[in-house]
Design a protein around this nucleic acid. Structure first.
Lengths: 191, 191
DNA sequence: TGAATTTGATAACATATGTTATCGCTTGCC
DNA sequence: GGCAAGCGATAACATATGTTATCAAATTCA
C-alpha cells in the first residue's frame, strides 16, 4: 500500500526500508477532525481509503476549501512547514484509512530527499504543481461564474460531485446550497 | 543593483561573478507586453524600477491577476518551468527598468542552487511562500466581500491603491469599476 | 496649447446571489 | 418500526453586483 508513496518519493528500496516505519496506518470514523484550525500541525497524512475535507471558519459557518481522496497527501502545508497555527481544519468526510507521519520524521525524509536528484526533482515538481493548481483555482473564482465552476468540477473531478454532500460542494464553489440547487435545476431544464 | 537578487539567491561571490552576466538590464515603456498569453515563456524578470501587471483574457476583457513592484521577480511560472503556453500576459504599467534572464541560464542557476544547502533552503522557502500566498488569495475570494478585499488591500498593499489605475484594481478584486466606485463611496460616507 | 484618450463618479435598470422558511425524502439509530 | 437529524429542492423576498450610458476631470501627446 506504500506503493503509491514510493512513486511520490522515489527513494531506492534500501532507504524505503528505513522510512516505512515512519508511517503508521490508522482507521478513523467520518467527521473526525485531524487538525484543528489554530493548532500547529505536527502531522501529515496519506489517504489509503476515504476522503478529507479542508475547511475554515467564516463568521461561525464552515467554508470548504479543498477535498482530498485516495492516494493523495494532505497536511496543513503552511502550518506544517513553518510551525505556525493552521488557518484551516482537516476533517474526514467518510470513514477513512490513513497513513500518518510526524513532522520530525517527514522533515528527515525531506532533508534526505533533496540530496537525491531523482527525489529532489519530484519534490520540486510537486511544489510547482501545487502552485499552478492554486493559481488556477484562484483564477476560476475571478473569471468563472458559479455555474461554470460547477460544470468544470463535473468534468474534471466527478468523484467530488458523486461522493461529497452537496452543502460542502456549495461552499467549495463559493455559493450557498440554495444557489447550487438553482444552478443544477437550471442546467437540467436545458440551461 | 543585483544586491537584492543576491539575497534571494544567496550564492557566494565567486559564483555570482559567473551568474551576473546572465542578467541584462533593460528599459521598457509603459504598457509594454513582456510575455503574451499563449506564448511559451523563455524569460524571467526582476524589477529594479516600475511595476508589472499579470492578466488574462475573459471574453475579450482583460482581467488582472497580480501586480509586481520593485525588487520582485516575475515570470509566467508554469510556462517558464514546464515549457507550456502561458495562461497569462505580463505587461508593464509604468515605464520600468528590468533585469531579464533567459530560461536556459535560469535553469542553470536553479540546478546549481539546489546543490547548495543555503541556496536550496531559500528556493524551497520561496516556493512554499508562493503557495501560501496563492492559497490565501483564493481564500479571500471565497470568504471575503469585495469591500473587505479592498480594505485588506489598503492595509497590506497600499502602494497598489496609490500607483495603480482603478480599473486594474477593480478587476484584481474581481469586480467592475462601477462597483469599486460604489464600494469606495460607501466607505467615505462612513460605511 | 488643444484635441483625444484615459480615468473615475454616478444614475437607472437588469441580473445574480443570499436569506429565511417550508416541505419531503432519506439515513442512522434506539 | 418509528423518531430525529441530515440532506436537498423550492419559493418569496432582500441585497449585491453587473450593464449601459452619461458626464467631468485628469492626463497624454502631437
Amino acid at each position: 500500500m506504500l506503493e503509491k508513496l514510493k512513486s511520490i518519493l522515489p527513494f531506492d528500496d534500501k532507504q524505503w526500508n528505513q522510512y516505512a516505519s515512519y508511517f503508521k496506518r490508522i482507521q478513523v470514523p467520518a467527521k473526525k477532525v485531524l487538525i484543528q484550525e489554530g493548532e500547529i500541525s505536527k502531522k501529515a497524512f496519506f489517504i489509503e481509503k476515504g476522503c478529507i475535507r479542508v475547511w475554515f471558519n467564516k463568521d461561525g459557518k464552515d467554508v470548504t476549501f479543498q477535498f482530498f481522496f485516495e492516494n493523495e497527501r494532505v497536511s496543513s502545508v503552511e502550518s506544517f512547514k513553518k510551525n505556525i497555527p493552521s488557518i484551516v481544519t482537516l476533517e474526514t468526510i467518510e470513514p477513512s484509512t490513513l497513513w500518518v507521519i510526524d513532522k520530525q520524521d517527514m522533515d528527515q525524509i525531506m532533508r534526505d530527499g533533496f540530496e537525491i536528484p531523482k527525489v529532489r526533482e519530484k519534490l520540486i515538481d510537486t511544489l510547482f504543481d501545487r502552485n499552478i493548481h492554486y493559481m488556477k483555482h484562484c483564477l476560476s473564482f475571478i473569471r468563472d461564474t458559479p455555474q461554470q465552476r460547477y460544470l468544470h468540477l463535473l468534468e474534471t473531478q466527478p468523484q467530488i460531485i458523486q461522493r461529497i454532500p452537496q452543502h460542502y460542494i456549495a461552499s467549495y464553489l463559493g455559493i450557498t446550497t440554495v444557489h447550487l440547487s438553482r444552478v443544477k435545476s437550471k442546467l437540467l431544464k436545458g440551461k
